[in-house]
Every structure is written in structure tokens, then in C-alpha cells.
Design a protein around this nucleic acid. Structure first.
Lengths: 66, 66
DNA sequence: GACTTTTGTAAAGTTTGTTTTACATTTGGT
DNA sequence: ACCAAATGTAAAACAAACTTTACAAAAGTC
């Protein structure tokens, strides 16, 4: 699965740490999700999408093999 | 977090086992998600939403405390 | 009321997500 | 070049998701 968190952060001009605070997780959680090291839970995906005022599907996209 | 999987299944008239096969997980995974015993990964949420032709937000909704 | 399908539940085990801490690297500003 | 802020990375510990197996309960069919 891929995501556009980095782009959305750039648009909103917030850091990984600020996004982490907004949704109540550690900065490393944001960093590892952004780096596609982990697939976040649906709760996190919903919160992240909400921060950016986008649908989950606009930020997280399935890939071959998912 | 709550979800409307049971309703969507009823509309599509498929069993837990059939949904599980469609998205490639065990029946118990569907059962426990439906019972709100745990929060699925974003990959699962996207796959489930896709089966029902709905947005993730139409099936999974954040609650107080999430 | 027996039979079949579907659903609920539970325990053990494996994998994966998340936190915490800490440090290295990069980037931006001056 | 220096400094500060942001990002990358990594290891250990813990929490949660997911699988497998198995059985009990419920619901639908005849």
C-alpha cells in the first residue's frame, strides 16, 4: 500500500511531529507509515484523512500484492 | 470505531466466510472486525470498502475515544 | 424436530503495528 | 561554515492484528 502523506503534509506545511501530535501518535509512527514500513490501523488512516480533509482512498491506495 | 459490515453483507447477501474469501482473510478476522473486537488494518479496510463499492468512511466511522 | 448453514467464541501462536529512546543525517536559514 | 529544525534509522519492549483449530449456539430449511 502506498500513501501521499508527505505530499499532504507539504500542502498543509506541517512537520511529521506536528501531524503526530494532531492525531495523537508518536513522530516515529508517522515517519514509518510515510516510509511504507508499516500499514497503519484504520483508526489512524481515518484520523490522518480527517486532518487533511480528504477521503481515506485519496491518501491510501492499494497496490499489487496487497 | 464502529462499522457497518454486517449491513453491507446483508445488502449484498454474502456470508462472513464469503467476504473473508473475497478479501483473502480468515472468517474469524471478519467476524471479530464485525464484532468490534479489533480494528482492521488500512489494507483490509480498503479491500472491504472496495467489495461493497463504498468509501472507507461510509463503512468505518470513528467514535469518541478513538 | 432433525439437518445444514451461518455465526459466536475462545485459546494458542505468529506476525505486525506502535512507543520510547537515542543518535545520525539532512535541510534551511543566516 | 554554523546553527537549528526536520527527517531517517535502529533496537528493545509492548500492544494489537491475524491465523488456525475447534466447538458451541443460532438460524434457516425440509
Amino acid at each position: 500500500m502506498k500513501n501521499t502523506i508527505r505530499v499532504e503534509r507539504a500542502i498543509k506545511n506541517i512537520t511529521q511531529g506536528e501531524l503526530a501530535d494532531l492525531i495523537g501518535v508518536s513522530r516515529q509512527t508517522i515517519n514509518t507509515i510515510e516510509s511504507n514500513k508499516y500499514v497503519p490501523s484504520t483508526v489512524l488512516a481515518l484520523k490522518i484523512a480527517r486532518v487533511f480533509n480528504k477521503a481515506v482512498e485519496q491518501i491510501f491506495e492499494l497496490e499489487e500484492g496487497d
